[in-house]
C-alpha cells in the first residue's frame, strides 16, 4: 500500500485561537478517510491545510513525496488535489459545461475540444450530462454538488477532498450525492471526507479519524471506531448519532 499523504504534528492558529494542536495521520493510495468530530473541532481547517487554502503554522504535510508546506508551485500542486465544498461554489457566471472546462483549459492547458470531451465524460458519470448547457443557478442543491464533483474530477486529481458535501442539501438530495461518492470510492479514488453522515462513513470509508478540540482523539478502521471505540469522547460523540 502506497502512502500518499503524511501529516505530521500540524499546528494551526487563527490569531490566538489554536485550532489544530498537533495533528498526525496518513492516507494511503485508494484510501477513503472520513474525518468526523464535533463542530469547531478543526476538521475543515485540517482539510483546508491539505490544499493550502490555509497554511499550517508548523508540522509537515507530505503529499506524494512532496513537502507541500515548502512547495514552489502551489497552483500545480492544487491541480492534483481536488476539493468539493459544502456550498458547492460553482462559478455563477458560467454554464455547467464551462464550469467543468475552465480550469482544464487555464491550468492544464488542454484545448477546448479535449476539455469538453472530458467534462462531458465526468458529467455523464455524475448523471448531469443532460444539464451541460444549463445555467448553474437553475440547478437543485444535489445537482450542483454533483456538478462540483465532476468539475473536480476533470482535473484528474490524485486526491479528492470533501468538506461536508451533503450538509447544505435537503434530505432528499443527500442520497444522490453520496451514491456518486460511493462509486468513486469503489473505483479506488483516494478521498478525504469531512462528514456528519455516519452510516456513509461506516459503509464506505477505509479509515475513520475522530477529531476533538484540535487533536486526533482516535483513528482506525470503521469497525474499530464505530463498534469498539476506546476513548470516552469518541463513545460520547457516537452515542449522539446512534439514538
Amino acid at each position: 500500500m502506497k502512502e500518499l499523504i503524511k501529516i505530521k504534528d500540524v499546528h494551526k492558529s487563527f490569531d490566538h485561537l489554536e485550532v489544530l494542536k498537533g495533528v498526525s495521520f496518513e492516507v494511503n493510495k485508494n484510501d477513503v478517510v472520513c474525518l468526523i468530530g464535533a463542530s469547531g473541532s478543526g476538521k475543515s481547517t485540517m482539510l483546508r491545510c491539505l490544499n493550502l487554502l490555509e497554511v499550517a503554522d508548523s508540522g509537515e504535510i507530505i503529499v506524494d513525496g512532496q513537502d507541500i508546506l515548502h512547495t514552489k508551485d502551489i497552483n500545480a500542486y492544487r491541480a492534483k488535489v481536488g476539493m468539493v465544498f459544502q456550498q458547492f461554489n460553482l462559478f455563477n457566471n458560467m454554464t455547467v459545461l464551462k464550469n467543468c472546462m475552465l480550469a482544464q483549459q487555464k491550468v492544464l492547458k488542454r484545448n477546448a475540444a479535449d476539455a469538453q470531451e472530458k467534462a462531458l465524460y465526468f458529467l455523464k458519470k455524475v448523471g448531469m450530462d443532460s444539464f451541460a448547457h444549463a445555467n448553474v443557478n437553475t440547478l437543485s442543491g444535489g445537482q450542483k454538488q454533483r456538478v462540483a464533483i465532476a468539475r473536480a474530477l476533470c482535473m484528474d486529481p490524485e486526491i479528492l477532498l470533501f468538506d461536508e458535501p451533503t450538509s447544505a442539501l435537503d434530505p432528499e438530495m443527500v442520497g444522490e450525492v453520496l451514491d456518486v461518492m460511493k462509486s468513486l470510492a469503489q473505483e479506488g479514488l483516494t478521498m478525504v471526507i469531512v462528514t456528519h453522515e455516519m452510516s456513509f462513513a461506516k459503509d464506505v470509508s477505509t479509515k475513520v479519524v475522530f477529531m476533538a478540540n484540535g487533536i486526533i482523539e482516535e483513528q482506525g478502521t470503521p469497525q474499530q471506531i464505530f463498534e469498539h471505540p476506546t476513548s470516552e469522547r469518541t463513545k460520547a460523540f457516537l452515542a449522539r448519532f446512534n439514538r
Binding site: 487554502l53 497552483n75 476539493m83 461554489n89 462559478f91 491550468v107 492544464l108
Partner: peptide, 14 residues
C-alpha cells in the same frame, strides 16, 4: 462570495 475564489484556487487557477 469568497467561495468563488476558493473554488477557482482549489482547481489550481492563479
Amino acid at each position: 462570495d469568497i467561495g468563488q475564489t476558493e473554488a477557482a484556487r482549489s482547481l489550481g487557477m492563479s
